[in-house]
């Protein structure tokens, strides 16, 4: 079929040249670049050894995972009630509320993290409030800190959790809930014994998606973090653009890639209907 060949060949050639080949080059760079930006002939695992051997870099990797795990957890816990309400409400504001909940997706992570900076910085909203209420004498330091990064990322990724869980709720047969209630189960019992177990795959998918996106996010840790709260993303940026050590940058990129891929694979295996969500990782 020559016509379908043409439809497929051009886009695939583009992706092979501009996506697959660069990725392959990244893998080779992670074992071929010993210092600076130019590859040598002998492959070496030194870059991986340096990252996994140094307490500093291991700390960065560990912090990234702790942040990702907390963000994933917070996202699904906060997203569930909102998603449940948006799917089940019969309010005439339903459409507007869905739009309002998903609208933050239209802003970059910078817009959303900047708001948290305004709130959390030393003479920001939270400190003004605490001083005004007489709860503290001196303004507190909330920034830079790892919890601030967790809050900022949770905020930025919440709409993804809402989407995953809404998809799972939409895919569920509402007759099952009516059946449980008609058999005498209370609304709360119906939720815990019927709705939640049936939508758990969507929750797991939302968790893994938020986890995977947050470990690769640059803007939020850059704005709300600082020296001492580096994540893999900010470290990769330092290696690539400030220290010009492309070997270490590539090696950390490979570690980040493998981690995100593993998480999304888990999400796809657990996800069921939720994995069909059209929009995924940015």
């Amino acid at each position: 079929m020559p016509r379908s060949f043409l439809l497929v060949a051009l886009p695939c050639a583009f992706l092979l040249l501009c996506f697959v080949a660069p990725m392959a080059y990244l893998f080779s760079a992670s074992v071929l670049i010993a210092e600076g930006t130019v590859p040598q002939d002998q492959p070496t695992l030194d870059n991986f050894r340096i990252i996994l051997g140094s307490a500093l870099y291991r700390g960065v990797v560990l912090r990234t995972f702790v942040v990702g795990f907390c963000v994933g957890l917070l996202v699904v816990v906060l997203a569930y009630p909102l998603a449940y309400f948006l799917v089940r409400t019969r309010s005439r504001w339903k459409g507007a509320l869905i739009a309002l909940s998903l609208a933050p997706l239209l802003g970059s992570a910078i817009v959303r993290s900047y708001g948290w900076h305004v709130i959390l910085n030393q003479d920001g909203a939270l400190n003004s409030l605490l001083l005004w209420a007489g709860l503290v004498e001196q303004p507190l330091r909330f920034l830079p800190s790892t919890p601030a990064i967790v809050i900022g990322l949770t905020h930025a990724l919440l709409p993804y959790g809402v989407l995953s869980i809404m998809t799972a709720l939409n895919a569920m047969d509402p007759a099952l809930e009516r059946a449980a209630m008609s058999l005498g189960a209370s609304r709360a019992r119906t939720f815990w014994r019927v709705t939640l177990p049936l939508t758990l795959p969507g929750v797991a998918a939302g968790f893994a998606l938020a986890f995977a996106i947050s470990i690769g996010a640059y803007a939020t840790p850059a704005i709300l973090g600082g020296p001492g709260t580096e994540t893999m993303a900010t470290m990769i940026r330092n290696f690539m653009l400030a220290l010009l050590d492309w070997g270490l940058g590539s090696a950390m990129g490979v570690i980040l890639l493998a981690s995100a891929l593993a998480l999304l694979l888990i999400a796809a295996l657990l996800g069921g209907p939720a994995r069909r969500t059209v929009v995924a990782a940015p």
Binding site: M23, W246, V254
Partner: peptide
């Protein structure tokens, strides 16, 4: 082909960025 198309969505964009940067220079 389906996997190829999903790739850029699934892999961290930041990694795609450092891969393209190095590939262009290479």
């Amino acid at each position: 082909v389906e996997a190829l198309v999903a790739g850029p969505l699934v892999l961290p964009t930041l990694v795609t960025g450092i891969a393209l940067l190095q590939f262009l220079h290479a």
